Every structure is written in structure tokens, then in C-alpha cells.
Simulated scan of single mutants.
Amino acid sequence: MELVKRAWKDPVWSKVISAAIILVIAWIAQHFFGSTEETAYHKAFTPLQLPHWLDRR
């Protein structure tokens, strides 16, 4: 634990550790809430359907 405390006080290693923590959190979130390639493609390229009350024609 002392090694982590010393590394956290170092200006470079603190950023490396924080980036690793963010990476792990993002990886876990992607695993549980992520999309497959097919659904990600579908979400990215499907036209957005606006309700009629937002259409100002």
C-alpha cells in the first residue's frame, strides 16, 4: 500500500493509476451495458424519428 501512496504522489504515476482506474470502470460498464457490433451499427445509422409536434414544416 505504501508503494501506491508514493506512486499516487508522483505527478506522472498518479495519472497512470487514474487512467487505469478509469479504463477498468469503462471496461466493466462496456461489458454489462455495451452493445454488440450489430446493435451499435444500428444505433449509429438509423434515422432519428422526431415526434410530429417537433416538425416545423
Score class of each variant (00 low, 15 high):
1 M>T: 15
1 M>N: 11
1 M>C: 14
1 M>S: 15
1 M>E: 10
2 E>P: 05
2 E>H: 05
3 L>D: 08
3 L>Y: 07
3 L>N: 08
4 V>T: 12
4 V>C: 06
5 K>N: 07
5 K>L: 12
5 K>A: 12
5 K>P: 05
5 K>C: 15
6 R>I: 02
6 R>T: 01
6 R>H: 10
7 A>K: 03
8 W>V: 03
8 W>L: 14
8 W>E: 14
8 W>C: 15
9 K>M: 08
9 K>S: 13
9 K>N: 11
10 D>L: 01
10 D>P: 12
11 P>C: 01
11 P>Q: 00
11 P>W: 00
11 P>F: 00
11 P>D: 01
11 P>V: 00
12 V>M: 00
13 W>Y: 03
14 S>N: 15
15 K>D: 02
15 K>R: 04
15 K>E: 09
16 V>D: 06
16 V>R: 07
16 V>T: 15
17 I>C: 15
17 I>K: 01
18 S>C: 15
18 S>A: 14
19 A>C: 07
19 A>D: 11
20 A>Y: 06
20 A>W: 03
22 I>A: 02
22 I>P: 08
22 I>W: 14
22 I>M: 01
23 L>D: 06
23 L>K: 11
24 V>W: 03
24 V>Y: 03
24 V>T: 04
24 V>P: 07
24 V>M: 00
25 I>C: 06
25 I>Q: 05
25 I>W: 13
25 I>D: 03
26 A>V: 06
26 A>P: 13
26 A>M: 03
26 A>T: 00
27 W>L: 04
27 W>D: 04
27 W>K: 07
27 W>G: 04
28 I>R: 06
28 I>E: 05
28 I>P: 15
29 A>E: 04
29 A>F: 05
29 A>H: 03
29 A>N: 08
30 Q>K: 09
30 Q>G: 14
30 Q>P: 13
30 Q>E: 06
31 H>G: 05
31 H>Y: 02
32 F>K: 02
33 F>R: 04
34 G>S: 12
35 S>Y: 04
35 S>T: 09
36 T>M: 02
36 T>E: 07
36 T>F: 09
36 T>A: 01
36 T>D: 01
37 E>G: 14
38 E>P: 11
39 T>V: 10
39 T>I: 08
39 T>G: 07
39 T>F: 02
39 T>L: 15
39 T>K: 06
40 A>F: 06
41 Y>Q: 10
41 Y>L: 09
41 Y>V: 12
42 H>A: 12
42 H>W: 07
43 K>I: 01
43 K>L: 13
43 K>A: 09
43 K>Q: 04
44 A>I: 11
44 A>C: 10
44 A>W: 10
45 F>D: 11
46 T>F: 10
47 P>Q: 00
47 P>T: 04
47 P>W: 01
48 L>N: 08
48 L>E: 13
48 L>F: 14
49 Q>P: 08
49 Q>W: 10
49 Q>Y: 14
49 Q>I: 11
49 Q>E: 14
50 L>T: 12
50 L>N: 14
50 L>K: 06
50 L>M: 13
51 P>G: 05
51 P>E: 00
51 P>A: 05
52 H>N: 13
52 H>S: 11
52 H>A: 11
53 W>T: 03
54 L>E: 06
54 L>K: 09
55 D>Q: 10
55 D>A: 02
55 D>K: 14
55 D>P: 11
55 D>M: 00
56 R>D: 10
56 R>M: 07
56 R>K: 13
56 R>Q: 12
56 R>L: 13
57 R>K: 09
57 R>T: 12
57 R>P: 02
57 R>V: 04
